[in-house]
Design a protein around this nucleic acid. Structure first.
Length: 621
DNA sequence: TAATTGGTTGCATTC
DNA sequence: CGAATGCAACCAATT
């Protein structure tokens, strides 16, 4: 089977853990960045490009614009730079078909990417350009493109993930050797991560949000978005096929493939993640959200509901506590979107949303700029006279959490592992593949947990609090399985899987870093029940339980046998019994965490303060 | 150095 | 039904 659990158990026989680690690192490290040394470290926060004048490039300059993340034309400094004085711009996306396979990346994220590429191509075409999608390895394709297309300028958005840093360093090296000028502006995050890092004492990012906020504030407002170009210099003549054919054998194909061509089963619209990928849809959803000021004003992430299913946006906006009753909600939340984009196909029924914005996949791929989000959000906040939620819970707070994790990831070697990770508690997690498989496949016997995991498998998306519930259950709450295994599952299946956020949140939930109150355990029965007494969410994702009385829907094993039979769901036959006794399991986990914390404290005291403390104070055993 | 404060999102029980 | 409390008491940052 193609599960992460199977990968764990098959590799365990020969080389414990290495198989999973390899898969996890490949899957997670699809995109990344290196700051280009040609750009000054002291670029002012505003006007990232205007202040960096180029010595009048010759009109014959041809640029390669390399898209990876940042699949957009708005707030795209690399695009802006590629266009400056250029006679031709070659927008390229390099698709590695080996990487885009079902065991590495789930269908929902691949489909979202393909939709985003199609949208980007359409937008580029409307501006006189087009997207050249090349199949192959980017470290071979980009140097070949520079040479064969005779391009003397390479522009791409900086990516701070380790895999991308390494990849981009190799490409930059080749480009420099060929005499190509390279520009790699920062635009994926609110701030240039390197500038944030420079503000951290000893270059070590804070592990507390409040400390991070001070560092971010010291840089002032994030840079304003750069303008969207009306027109883009055309590519050199030829259709995509003939252009790619010039690249030689490093290109193994061209064009935007279908899911089926990549080896995935069909996933028609209407199944899976409910919204289409791409900049156009991302901006539409952003602006529709921002057109509901009451929703923006009252947004508090912990108050949103993990069991609220996707529904028309006007109802979603009303669901945030207080937003529906305040009277401030506009009669038509779509007006601003219509005004902003000149769109004609906007209608309320087409924009479905859960209780949160569901913009995360657009942020992950850079279909929506964080800086555009930030500044358009602030325009709304300014109209609210301070009467709105604030970080960390607010919408702005969510953008800053993203920034927090990007900084932590960039400043922490081995960030995606426990071993060798400076900030990560060393905890003797298990790699029990049977436990992992039950969790991964949604058959733990706890309907709330299993329904969440089925939502992940089907749609590639879960509410933030659902992610908390299942992550806690897998690690410190019940199963005591390694957080790296859970992170690998999320990294494959989530439509919004983002390396910095995913690993950071798994450390958070497993009490490995950032959060430490290991005795606060999410109940696999009680937590979901708080939001959804009747269990409609469970009934939707676990149809075998749809006729179970509400009294037993979260604990079907407690239902008398005749009730189970009447509901058509006998525990042990139609649905599994609970794989652990939660009370006993969580107690054991808490004890293990307490022991690991104690060992950490003693180890730390011994190594760091051994000398000055000799004879000064008796250590706890 | 020691104490204090605050920390996006627990649960069960009580008022 | 929302707020308050005990639970056994974590850590990072600040003072």
């Amino acid at each position: 089977s193609g599960t992460i659990a199977a990968s764990v158990s098959s590799r365990l026989a020969l080389a414990p853990l290495s198989g999973l680690r390899r898969v996890a690192s490949r899957v997670s490290a699809r995109v990344a960045v290196r700051r280009c040394p040609t750009r000054s470290a002291s670029v002012p926060a505003t006007a990232a490009l205007a202040s960096d004048p180029d010595p009048t490039p010759p009109m014959s300059t041809r640029s390669v614009l390399w898209f990876r993340k940042g699949l957009r034309v708005h707030d795209n400094p690399a695009l802006q730079r590629a266009c400056e004085g250029a006679s031709a711009v070659m927008p390229v996306f390099v698709l590695d078909p080996w990487f885009m396979s079902p065991e590495r990346v789930g269908a929902n994220r691949v489909r979202f990417l393909l939709e985003s590429l199609r949208d980007l191509d359409e937008t580029l075409q409307s501006k006189g350009s087009k997207l050249v999608v090349v199949h192959g390895n980017p470290t071979e394709v980009i140097p070949a493109a520079l040479e064969r297309w005779q391009c003397t300028r390479l522009c791409f958005e900086t990516d701070t993930e380790p895999y991308a840093k390494k990849r981009d360093a190799a490409v930059v090296r080749a480009a420099k050797e060929a005499g190509v000028e390279v520009h790699a502006p920062s635009s994926h995050t609110l701030y240039d991560v390197e500038r944030l890092l420079a503000k951290c004492p000893k270059g070590e990012p804070p592990t507390a949000y409040g400390t991070f906020l001070k560092i971010a504030a010291s840089l002032g407002d994030p840079p304003k978005p750069v303008p969207t170009p009306d027109t883009i210099p055309g590519t050199i003549p030829g259709d995509v096929a003939s252009l790619v054919s010039q690249l030689g054998s490093c290109a193994t194909g061209h064009g935007i493939p279908t899911l089926e061509e990549l080896g995935y089963p069909a996933l028609p619209r209407g199944e899976g993640f409910p919204a289409a990928g791409g900049e156009t849809e991302g901006l539409r959803r952003l602006r529709t959200t921002l057109a509901a000021p009451a929703y923006v004003a009252e947004f508090k992430k912990p108050s949103t509901s993990p069991t609220q299913m996707w529904q028309p946006a006007d109802r979603a906006f009303a669901s945030v506590k207080g937003a529906g009753s305040s009277g401030a909600r506009p009669a038509n939340p779509f007006e601003a979107a219509k005004r902003g984009g000149g769109e004609t196909k906007i209608d309320a029924a087409a924009l479905f949303a859960p209780s949160t914005t569901a913009l995360s996949p657009y942020m992950k791929f850079g279909c929506v700029s964080a800086r555009t989000f930030y500044h358009e959000l602030h325009a709304v906040l300014r109209g609210l006279n301070g009467k709105h939620s604030k970080p960390p819970e607010s919408l702005e707070g969510q953008l800053l959490w993203r920034e927090f994790y990007y900084l932590a990831a960039a400043g922490t070697p081995n960030y995606d592992k426990m071993e060798g990770n400076r900030i990560c508690r060393q905890i003797p997690w298990s790699w029990d593949s049977a436990r992992l498989a039950a969790w991964e496949e949604g058959r733990t016997g706890f309907p709330w947990i299993d329904a969440c995991m089925m939502q992940l498998r089907k749609e590639g998306w879960m509410h933030h609090l659902s992610r908390h519930a299942v992550a806690c259950f897998l690690t410190r709450g019940d199963l005591f399985v390694h957080w790296e295994a859970g992170a690998a599952v999320f990294d494959r299946d989530l439509v919004d899987a983002d390396w910095a956020l995913n690993n950071g949140n798994w450390m958070w939930l497993s009490c490995s870093c950032f959060f430490y109150q290991y005795f606060r355990v999410y109940g696999p029965v009680s937590f979901g029940k708080k939001y959804d007494k009747n269990g409609d969410f469970i009934r939707h994702y676990l149809p075998q339980l749809k006729n179970m009385p509400a009294k037993y829907i979260y604990e079907p094993w407690l239902a008398p046998l005749d009730v189970q039979k009447k509901a058509g769901c006998v525990v042990g036959e139609d649905y599994p019994p609970p794989m652990v006794d939660h009370a006993a399991a969580s107690k054991e986990c808490i004890e293990k965490l307490a022991a690991a914390y104690k060992a950490h404290k003693e180890g730390k005291g011994g190594t760091i303060k051994a000398e000055p403390r000799v004879g000064a104070k008796r250590k706890a055993e």
